[in-house]
Structure formats: C-alpha cells, structure tokens
C-alpha cells in the first residue's frame, strides 16, 4: 500500500530541480568535468593521445605543485587545452596546449629537459609580470606552455609547474592498451 506517494513525488521534483540547477550552473559542461591527463590514470591520457593522432609523444601531468589547480580541460579532435589557476600567479595563469604543430619562429632553442622533444622558449616580458611560452616540439606534435602571471610573481613558478609535465610515447600507450584492454592501438 502506497501512502507516501506525494512525498516521493515531491522528493523526485526536488531532486530534478536540484540537478537542473546544478546542470545549468555548469555541472553539465564537458570542459569543467574532464580531469587533466595524469600519468597514473590512463583514462584521459588515451583521449588526449587521440586528440592529436599524428603525435609520437603524448603529454600527461604528474602531481601539480602546491597552489596550482586545473580549471578546465578541453579535449577534442583538434587537440587538448588545459587551463590552470594559481593561488599566487592568478586565474588562468598557465595554459598547456597539445596540437599537431606550433609556431616557434620567435622562440629561441634551449637544451630540452624532456626526452625526444626539442625545447624552444619565447619570453615576452619578465617585469612587472612574467609572460612567456615554452614549446616542446616532437614528430607529429607540439606541446607548449603559455604562462601569464600576475604582477610580482617570478618565473620560478613556471619552472615548478613545468616540472609536472611528462611526455609518454604513443608506443608505450599502445603496449599498455594491448596488455590491459584489447588488441587494438590508438
């Protein structure tokens, strides 16, 4: 015998309204829901690799330095974009791009800290606020940081954040898929 019919209906309505408001306030946004490609969790890394199918290397992130958080992650067939906030350098103080190619004509070549990739850096300004791009170019793809810090924040923050970037080979990802998932490749 149903005697709580109205109450249940009211609860359903309240739940629907809550979900609706949550959805309207950004809960249904893909970019705000995706997590950054961490090197420990292959879920996002696989579609990051699929976003630039020509790239031999694929970016992933280890633990971010203290004070940095991921704001949005966009992963599409055109590439991957990760926007990050910092409690010191400001909102969207760093953006990590992963595309098929990039323009390094204004940048200077430096010794690379990541295997298999060439490093280029273009410093727009250091004071009053740090603004620069750091490019890693490799066969079939390019990963670059775009730093735009608030005033009074040094370039040292960019070094800390840059150290969290790792490039894994597509072959290693394919091997991992074959070992733990199915006999296919990216």
């Amino acid at each position: 015998m149903r005697i709580l019919w109205t109450t249940w209906r009211q609860r359903c309505a309240q739940l629907a309204v809550s979900v609706f408001l949550l959805a309207l306030t950004g809960g249904c946004s893909v970019s705000s829901s995706l997590s950054a490609p961490t090197c420990e969790n292959g879920q996002s890394t696989l579609i990051v690799a699929q976003s630039v199918p020509s790239a031999e290397l694929v970016p992933c992130l280890t633990e971010l330095p203290r004070g940095w958080t991921v704001q949005t992650v966009e992963i599409t067939q055109q590439g991957t974009t990760i926007r990050m906030d910092s409690d010191r350098a400001g909102t969207v103080a760093a953006v990590l791009w992963f595309k098929e190619s990039c323009d390094t004509s204004d940048a200077v070549s430096l010794p690379s800290d990541l295997d298999g990739a060439e490093l280029f850096e273009y410093i727009v300004r250091i004071t009053p606020s740090f603004r620069a791009q750091r490019y890693y170019v490799f066969p079939g793809g390019c990963v670059w940081w775009d730093f735009d810090f608030n005033a009074d924040n040094s370039a040292a923050l960019s070094i800390d954040l840059g150290n969290s970037l790792v490039l894994v080979s597509r072959d290693a990802l394919n091997e991992n898929i074959r070992d733990s998932f199915i006999d296919e490749e990216l």
Partner: peptide
C-alpha cells in the same frame, strides 16, 4: 540540462576512449 548532466557524469565516470 538533465540529459547534458547525465551524459557528462556518466562519460567521465566510464572514461571510454574514442574507437581504437
């Protein structure tokens, strides 16, 4: 809104890549 919300939540939880 509900469909977008459900689709997003499920897709993030399942984490399925595009066809391999």
């Amino acid at each position: 809104s509900l469909v977008a919300f459900i689709s997003t939540v499920i897709s993030v939880q399942i984490g399925r890549p595009r066809p391999l």
